[in-house]
């Protein structure tokens, strides 16, 4: 991302801005709608974060409600569900980091070695499609295949003489179902960016390797994998920067009282406490805690990556 150096106050700079404004009036005008939109819907809510340190009274509004310091945070850290929420939120993310993150890389590398372009195209077309399916439909499909009485997987298990497994209503299976259905939905789409990087590799390098007698596996190991490392690193940084974020929709839709001990994450908790329970300030403090950790992680991982691999976001 580009760096901007805006120094205010110096008269030369000021007149430059004036000149630019005169020259590009129309460009400023074009930028205006989106700027206003983002300021209203993304910057103004930041003002509401102060609720995390306040006791919210609807009658008195955000500004008029009394300050209570860190009381909400203390309440959250001391509560019995705090560790469960942390364990689940981090657990799902680490599971995804280990299993879902490498999946598209793997798929892209394998697809890159396919020489029959028709086969390649059909694999791509079919694996991209689930990306466009809604979460509700995905969860519908999961429940169709996994349900205890009628799901095909359990029909198969029963026909082999085993006891059916209550996939949807057991805490033990929740994370696995969550992660693997996620792979099904996004592995194809996620592979596009790696495919693009792989096609960007200089064909001469590959040719030279073939002349030198490198096998396909050696070419993958020495050319393809190093070639996609920078892209993978950037995506990894972004992923770690969301280590505390779990998409709300799928968790919410897969959640039920029987698997809640393993499925309750911060986003569903904030929804339940804040919107359903109307305990606004408490929910804001939990959400703030979440995004602060995410920001710290993003900055930290980015710094580490810059040191180690010279690839970084900024």
């Amino acid at each position: 991302m580009a760096k901007s150096a805006i120094v205010q106050g110096s008269p030369i700079k000021k007149s430059e801005w004036k000149k630019d404004f005169k020259r590009h009036k129309m460009l400023y005008l074009l930028s205006l709608p989106t700027l206003i939109f983002l300021i209203i819907f993304h910057y103004i809510p930041i003002y509401g974060i102060q609720l995390a340190f306040k006791d919210f009274f609807a009658m008195r509004g955000i500004w008029g409600s009394p300050w209570i310091g860190f009381e909400n945070f203390e309440r959250f850290f001391r509560s019995y569900y705090f560790w469960d929420l942390m364990k689940n939120t981090l657990g799902i993310n680490i599971y995804e980091l280990l299993v879902s993150f490498p999946a598209p890389i793997f798929l892209a590398i394998l697809l890159n070695e396919v020489t029959k372009s028709k086969f390649k195209k059909s694999v791509q077309m079919v694996t991209y499609a689930p990306h466009f399916i809604s979460t509700v439909v995905l969860v519908g499909i999961i429940s169709i295949f996994m349900s205890q009485e009628t799901g095909l997987i359990n029909v198969l298990i029963k026909s082999l003489g085993f006891e059916p497994i209550p996939f949807l209503t057991s805490a033990r299976w929740f994370k696995t179902i969550f992660v693997f259905s996620g792979i099904w939905q996004s592995v194809g789409w996620g592979s596009i960016i790696y495919m693009a990087t792989l096609t960007g590799i200089d064909p001469q390098t590959v040719e030279a390797a073939i002349v030198d007698g490198a096998t396909k596996l050696q070419r993958i190991w020495h050319i393809s994998i190093p070639g996609i490392m920078p892209t993978a690193t950037i995506l990894l940084i972004l992923k770690v920067g969301r280590i505390m974020g779990v998409g709300f929709e799928k968790v919410f839709l897969l959640q039920n009282p029987l698997n809640q001990s393993s499925s309750d994450v911060i986003s569903t908790f904030v929804y339940r406490v804040g919107l359903v329970g109307a305990d606004y300030s408490f929910a804001v403090s939990v959400g703030l805690f979440n995004s602060v950790i995410n920001c710290i992680m993003l900055v930290a991982v980015n710094a580490i990556s810059r040191r180690v691999s010279e690839t970084s976001l900024w």
Binding site: M1, S4, P45, G48, I49, L51, A283, V284, L288
Partner: peptide
């Protein structure tokens, strides 16, 4: 302008303040 836009990708008010807005 780019900074103003990209900042919203990494930080925001969160669920409740947006809902109140």
């Amino acid at each position: 302008i780019m900074y103003i836009y990209t900042f919203t990708m990494f930080f925001g008010g969160g669920l409740i303040p947006t809902y109140l807005l």
